[in-house]
């Protein structure tokens, strides 16, 4: 290689190497290191090796919380799937420009901050909020429904905030389906459910799993939705980590939970790759 070319290569490679080392690898290694330290009662970190933080995770109190958090995330993911498939299948038959417009419109809400939109949900969901007022006004219900300050509120908020991350990959997978195969199956008398199960689902599974990853993982961590729409009553793993870092001040324990989450994430990504998903497609909105 010529010297000049080498310089050119360095300019293009070095920054990204430094970035990866300093802002990705180093922080995670440091968190891994912290997770094996001990903390004193009021927040100091003692550099003394222990695996107690990991043992602590498996305390029944926390296991219960993890299960609850995972269930909320699963329900959120499932609802997003239930919305995204029909949405994509209907949109598939529309013209190219309608598809383009639709995908743009999905992204627009993101340009206002997600907290503002969550606040919009408070106005809608609270006891004398818009939805309850409309329903009682129309005589459909006698007493206002409890739509927030519980798990229902959290799930509405999560589905709302994360739905675009499911809609977009599912749409792009469904749009690529071979029209002729579906038509042929129809001609052969296959029922819609059969077509979905045997043709559509297998061909779009990696798109669906891509979306599921991008919904499931954040919904474990979005503490602010649990805080605001759950009334601080339901803690999800995100709240637990946040509390360890910002309130209880037990960084080592918070780090251990974070490492635990990273491991789960990597395992899920592995499954995704097995299903034929490409890592480049993750997060490609």
């Amino acid at each position: 290689m010529k010297k000049k070319d080498f310089g050119f290569k360095t300019i293009f490679i070095l920054p990204i190497v430094i970035y990866t080392l300093v802002l990705i690898v180093l922080p995670i290694i440091y968190v891994l290191f912290l997770s094996f330290c001990t903390s004193d009662s009021y927040g100091g970190i003692n550099y003394q090796f222990t695996i107690d933080n990991y043992i602590n995770i498996f305390d029944i109190t926390y296991i219960k919380m993890f299960v609850k958090s995972a269930l909320i995330a699963l329900v959120t993911t499932f609802i997003c799937l239930l919305i995204s498939y029909p949405f994509a299948l209907i949109l598939r038959r529309k013209s190219e420009s309608v598809k383009n417009l639709a995908t743009k419109l999905i992204m627009v809400p993101f340009l206002t901050n997600s907290l503002i939109r969550t606040y919009g949900w408070i106005i809608l969901l609270r006891k004398n909020g818009v939805i309850n007022n409309v329903l009682t006004g129309a005589g459909l219900i006698e007493f206002p429904l409890n739509l927030m300050y519980n798990k229902v509120g959290i799930i509405i908020g999560m589905v709302y905030t994360l739905l675009p991350f499911m809609l977009l990959p599912v749409c792009s997978a469904v749009f690529e389906l071979d029209k002729n195969v579906i038509e042929a199956a129809k001609d052969l008398g296959a029922k819609p459910l059969q077509i979905f199960k045997n043709i559509i689902l297998p061909q779009t599974i990696s798109g669906a799993f891509n979306g599921s990853l991008m919904v499931f993982i954040p919904s474990i961590g979005y503490f602010f939705i649990a805080d605001i729409l759950g009334g601080g009553k339901t803690m999800i793993i995100g709240n637990l980590i946040k509390n360890q870092f910002l309130t209880a001040r037990n960084w080592p324990f918070g780090s251990a939970i974070s490492i635990f989450l990273i491991i789960i994430t990597f395992a899920l990504v592995k499954v995704y790759k097995r299903l034929g998903g490409k890592i480049e497609d993750l997060g490609g909105l």
């Binding site: 990853l213 954040p218 961590g221 946040k242 918070g254 993750l282």
Partner: peptide, 12 residues
Amino acid sequence: IVIPEIVLGISL
């Protein structure tokens, strides 16, 4: 892209 934002937040 894949890890939960909160983990990225606390590690930074």
